[in-house]
Amino acid sequence: MLKTLLISALVILVVIAIATYLIATHVLPYAILQPGHKTSDQTPAAFGLPYEHFQFQVTDSIELDALYVPATTEVPRANLIMLHGVGSCKEVYLGSVAVLVKMGYNVMLWDQRAHGKSGGKFLTYGYFEKHDVSKAIDWLEARNPGLPTGIYGNSMGGAVALQSLAHDDRLEFGLIESTFTDLASVSNAYGQRIGGIPLPWWLTNYVVRRAGEIADFEPFTVRPIDAAKEITQPIQLIHGNADRNINISNAHALFESLASEDKDFYIVEGGDHADLWAVGKEPYQEALFGFFRRMVEGGNE
């Protein structure tokens, strides 16, 4: 009887081990790399704004679906790139764009790789996307010579923005919301939140490593906290202290690591990951738009 129970237990353990291996190798990496395609047909015209809708070529095989909304002031004062988070799309920011163009910003935004209406099979959390940002700066500078360019990024977009600020010093300022310190840590945290139990690091590191093999990138080098140490441009960080997706400890660590002497950290009391506008209300909006207003009124000099 005991021998039978031991054999049964061993079989169960082997089955669990095989199932875990198959899921970690062939399922979970794609949850990191292919977050889904949220799309929207809304355009800036819904806000009474002129715009250009075009396909933005970033590699021989990848085009990104982009919008360019010019400033509505008599003289444009700056360019701004806006980057959305995982599973989102560019159109979620059109309400903010309507405010920013009145400040004098020419705004460029696109569906990031493997998102929305853009091409690209995999998301790499900034490893390749920072080069997309550099190509966007090329486009904006050719279109608007002599204007400074800034960047906004939310969540995954914030991680891309931080890496872009370190990678390309043509970016003169940035506002970063609700982002993480490094891909390995946030993957472990997400896994624990979704699974409801602590996950061993060896397992999440295996999944992250496997994602890198599939998408041909080096995931353990995706570390916005290292990028922060190289950033000297003016930076505004915003994070909710009730964020269940990316704990606010990430923002504290990023803020401490930033090399910039012109940096600020605004905490939205009670703010979760996707409700900062609703929870933070006017004080949050002032932190957001106040930073961008300062950047075009000479406060970044």
Rank of each mutant, 00 (worst) to 15 (best):
A71Y: 02
T73M: 10
D264C: 00
Y30C: 03
L2N: 15
D65M: 04
A159Y: 01
H167N: 14
K102A: 11
S164C: 13
E91R: 11
F47G: 07
G146L: 10
A24E: 00
H239W: 10
T124Y: 05
T232I: 15
H84F: 05
L276Q: 03
L64S: 05
G36E: 04
G104H: 06
D41F: 14
H273T: 06
I176C: 07
G174T: 14
G85E: 09
A278T: 13
V14G: 04
D264E: 12
S61P: 01
M103Y: 13
F289Q: 07
P198I: 03
L254R: 01
D275C: 10
T20P: 03
K38F: 02
A136K: 08
V279E: 09
S118M: 01
G116Y: 09
F289C: 04
M103L: 09
V92M: 09
M295T: 11
A24S: 14
H239L: 11
G126R: 02
R293D: 05
K117I: 01
S61N: 12
H84W: 04
P44R: 06
H252K: 15
E52R: 15
D275G: 12
D138L: 13
I16M: 15
E286L: 10
G87S: 04
K38M: 13
M295I: 12
P283F: 12
V207P: 00
V208H: 01
V160E: 10
N188F: 14
V296S: 01
G126T: 08
I81R: 01
Y266R: 04
E63M: 14
V186D: 05
